[in-house]
């Protein structure tokens, strides 16, 4: 297993480098201009100077090489130095990947966005899964019952209603009409006491629910299908023939086997958590990674977009690996070597 993991990791290095180059190429070819969003009152000559000061005058390969050095060498060194409080290899004038728009290191921006993204999007993923699994189990066990039909309907809603609709709808109901929850997420809130904790919970409720609806819809369908697959298997009948309790049959035999593919799907979905939920973040002003990306795209902020998309690519490759390894661990029939 270890060998397998190492081999996979090694293979992913050229793949990721290639991906980073492709991303760079696409961004370079895209007709976006970091000065495009500036007011029209700024004259063209000034725009040209701004572009030059951003390093846009250099040829593409040079810029790509610089990004690679900054991202693969300087940023890790910087993390190392920050962690140990050291200053190695000339930390003073080490060039980091810097955003065109904020003129600050991209990695710092991403780190700053992590808490709210993980809290809101991550939590919604967890909540969504926790709701989805029992729903999937019950719907499969009581296939075609009213519970199953309702579950099918709700997940259809979850699949088809976009968050910019459901988000605004819950804001109008729970913020405007009832006044229960804030419609704007406060990223400056620090949880230090019970009251601030409750504030945090209150501001998370709506975005988490809107996002969890989607996760639930998806995972509960998977869970249901996987349970149905297993419920009709002979080994379930064996378990019943053994005279095991129905709960044991369901939870030990069927559920454990049904979870294998579902856990794979869950693992593959994790990069999406880090990718944020662009629309939901916008609707509730959570301003996490997703919103950072969208602002970067709108502002023609190539270093930011490049770095973020590349990190997503790494996440996706990693999640695939994790999914494969998990599969190997959970299913004794699979062995990698």
């Amino acid at each position: 297993m270890l060998n397998y993991t190492l081999r996979r990791l090694m293979f992913s290095i050229p793949v990721l480098l290639f991906i980073s180059f492709i991303i760079f190429l696409i961004l370079d070819l895209a007709p976006s201009d970091p000065t495009g969003n500036l007011p029209l009152t700024i004259p063209p000559e000034v725009r040209e100077k701004i572009r030059e000061s951003l390093g846009l005058g250099q040829p593409m390969p040079v810029r790509y090489y610089k990004w690679c050095v900054q991202f693969f060498v300087n940023e890790p060194l910087n993390i190392w130095d920050q962690y140990w409080g050291t200053c190695s290899f000339g930390c003073e004038d080490r060039l980091r990947v810097v955003s065109y728009v904020t003129r600050s290191p991209v990695v710092d921006l991403i780190v700053q966005r992590m808490p709210q993204t993980l809290w809101v999007v991550g939590m919604s993923y967890v909540v969504g899964i926790l709701i989805a699994i029992p729903i999937g189990v019950i719907s499969a066990y009581k296939q075609y019952s009213w519970f199953d039909q309702t579950g099918t309907f709700v997940s259809m809603v979850g699949f088809s209603v976009p968050p910019f609709f459901s988000g605004v709808l819950v804001i109008i109901i729970f913020s405007v009409q009832l006044g229960w929850f804030p419609s704007i997420y406060d990223t400056t809130l620090k949880v230090v006491s019970w009251d601030t904790f409750m504030l945090q919970v209150r501001q998370m409720v709506m975005p988490v629910m809107v996002l969890a609806l989607q996760t639930t819809a998806q995972i509960s369908r998977f869970m249901r299908a996987s349970m149905l697959d297993n419920l009709n298997q002979d080994y379930v009948r064996t378990a019943r023939a053994k005279g095991m309790k129905e709960s044991v049959v369901l939870l030990v035999h069927v559920l454990r086997n049904s979870l294998i593919p579902v856990i794979t799907v869950i693992a593959l979905g994790i990069p999406a958590v880090f990718g944020g939920a662009i629309i939901t973040e916008q609707v509730f002003k959570v301003n996490g990674i997703g919103q950072l990306l969208i602002i970067g795209i709108q502002g023609g902020d190539a270093p930011l977009v490049q770095t973020l998309t590349f990190i997503f690519a790494v996440m996706i490759v990693m999640a695939n690996l994790v999914a494969d390894i998990m599969y190997g661990i959970l299913d004794p029939r699979i062995r990698y070597d």
């Binding site: 955003s99 904020t102 921006l109 700053q112 966005r113 990223t187 400056t188 301003n287 919103q291 950072l292």
Partner: peptide, 8 residues
């Protein structure tokens, strides 16, 4: 007192 770029 605190600046979070593109946020608050």
């Amino acid at each position: 007192t605190e600046f979070k770029a593109n946020d608050v």
